[in-house]
Structure formats: C-alpha cells, structure tokens
C-alpha cells in the first residue's frame, strides 16, 4: 500500500469520524443520562427520526436551521417525557415502551414527513477549520459542524456534573438505588422523567444533525437504525459520557473504512468493510468486557443489567 493510498484512507477515516459520529454522540449522551437515572429508553431511534424530520420541516418553513435544531429537540422532549411518564406507572416495562415509542416516533415522522422529501431546506453551516491545509480531503474533513463541538461540550459538562454537581449526584443515586434516593428526599420518578425528557431532547438534536448537516436531507431511510445502535453504544461506553464520545468517533471512523477502501480500488468483500463498525465494536466488547467491571459501572436500578 503506497503512502498516498494510506493517507487517503486515514483522511477519510478522520473525516468520517467527525461527520458520522455526531448523531451517535447526541443519542448516546441522551441515553447515558436516562440510563444513569435508572431507566432505559430503547426508543431513541424514534426521537432521532422524528427530530430529523421536524428539523428539516422547520428549517424549510422558517429558513432558519437553528430553529429547526431547537424544534427537533422539543419533539425529542415530547417523546422522551411520554416515555418517562408512562414508565413511571407501576409494572410498565421501560424497554418495551421504548420499542413502542420507536415505532410511534418513526411512524409519525414518516406520516408527516412526506411533503419534505423533495424540497431543499437551509442547512447548518460548517466551520471551515482546515483552511491551513492544501489537501482538499483534509480541508473537507475539517469542515466541522458546530453541533459536533456542542456534543463534545455536552459530554464534558455531563462528565463533570455526574462527578461534582448536586444534580449529577441525584441522578446517579436515583439510578443506583431507589430506596437510597427516597431516603435522601429525592423523588425518583421526577428525576427519571426529567432525565428521559432531556435525553430525548439530545436525541432529537442528533436527528437535526442528520437532516440539516450530514448527509443533510430528509428521507425515510435517513437513520436506518443509527439511533438503536447509539443506544447500544452506551453499554459499550459503560455509561461514561467521555467514553461515549470515543465510541461514537470510533464507530464513525470504522464506518468510513468501507467507502475509503473502495475509493482507492480495494473493493473485494465490501460487505464486510461496510460492516466494519459492527465487527470492530463486537471484538472490542469481547476483548474488554468482564462481567465484574461492567457490572460495577452499571447503574444498579437498570433493568437491562439486573
């Protein structure tokens, strides 16, 4: 493999990591917050798809993509609080409701999204941070959407807040032990509803990135399961916001391997290259997962790890 080819692939992977990772990042961060409070919302795929549609529609009608981002977040709050409220009823299973919300959210998005497939809505402007480079690929890879940095900022804030803030402590305690939280005078259901709603907001914003930045248009195949995968990445990232970022970047970079290899003429077995993110994630999990360590980091009230 010549240096040029290797450089092309590496630049593609860098670009892929930055371009593709943002929606994974937002959904995974939203889910981390929800799961830290002791609930699982498997339905963030629904938030992602609905967010994408709403963002595109609002941007199209108002001409302001940032309003679209906000509206996507609000649609996510709507779905998230629905999940949070329903799951606060006794004996209702949060995983099941999540899957139902996924179906509901995608259904609503597809139903109302028909008129927005064809028009072009104003998109979010990227920040051209690669101006110093002569390499067109590198310049493109460093055309970074502000939401990418927002995502990293959110992760840093969450990471700090979980460890150091009163709110973070309340969320973590609710997630680890309901009786302990009650003993402290915390209302676990309120904390969980709020966490799921905010988590839903973040997932909705992730959807806005899909339709308004990359790939940057609305259609029904837009997400194809990215929301579901991002929720799974939370377990991979062991409920740590910073590791969510790493996981999302890794996943994005791995996703760029397939197209990048084909672009330099290596295309035998492209189905496996295209499945690289899944294969890689599985191998890392098998290599790193030990019941003891992951169990230690998992929120105690989480039904998926009980």
């Amino acid at each position: 493999m010549s240096d040029g080819i290797l450089a092309t692939i590496l630049i593609s992977m860098l670009g892929g990591a930055i371009r593709v990772s943002t929606p994974f990042m937002f959904v995974a961060l939203g889910e981390t917050l929800t799961e830290k409070s002791g609930r699982i919302n498997l339905g963030l795929e629904g938030n992602l798809v609905l967010g994408a549609m709403v963002a595109y529609a609002v941007s199209y009608h108002t001409g302001n993509p940032w309003l679209g981002v906000l509206a996507a977040g609000v649609s996510g709050v709507f779905l998230g609080s629905m999940h949070g409220l329903i799951c606060s009823l006794p004996r209702v299973n949060d995983i099941a409701v999540g899957i139902a919300m996924m179906s509901f959210g995608t259904g609503v998005a597809f139903f109302f999204g028909k008129p927005y497939i064809q028009p072009s809505a104003p998109r979010l402007e990227a920040l051209p941070l690669g101006g110093w480079s002569d390499n067109a690929g590198l310049r493109q890879a460093l055309d970074i959407n502000p939401l990418f940095f927002v995502g990293i900022l959110v992760a840093l804030v969450m990471w700090w807040a979980f460890a150091n803030s009163r709110w973070g402590l309340i969320v973590r305690m609710t997630g680890d032990s309901e009786p302990a939280a009650r003993a402290m005078g915390v209302q676990p259901y309120q904390v969980r509803i709020a966490s799921t709603a905010i988590g839903g907001f973040l997932a909705g914003v992730g959807g806005a990135f899909l339709s308004l930045s990359y790939p940057g248009s609305w259609n029904e195949g837009l997400s194809s399961g990215q929301g579901l995968m991002a929720v799974a990445l939370v377990i991979f990232a062991r409920w740590n916001p910073l590791r969510c970022i790493v996981a999302a970047l890794l996943f994005g970079a791995a996703g760029a391997i397939g197209p990048a290899l084909q672009s330099v003429g290596i295309s035998q077995g492209y189905y496996f290259f295209n499945a690289a993110p899944y294969i890689l994630t599985l191998f890392i999990m098998i290599a790193s997962a030990r019941s003891s360590s992951s169990a230690r980091e998992a929120p105690g009230e989480l039904s998926i790890t009980k």
Binding site: L282, I286, A289, R290, S291, S294, I304
Partner: peptide, 15 residues
C-alpha cells in the same frame, strides 16, 4: 465473558 447480550445480538445481526 459478560458481554451484554442486547448489544452483541444487535451487532451480530448486522454481521
């Protein structure tokens, strides 16, 4: 190995 079955089964579907 303590690998979470939800995520591994989803990954294996794509594979």
């Amino acid at each position: 190995r303590g690998v979470n079955e939800t995520i591994s089964s989803l990954l294996m579907t794509y594979i």
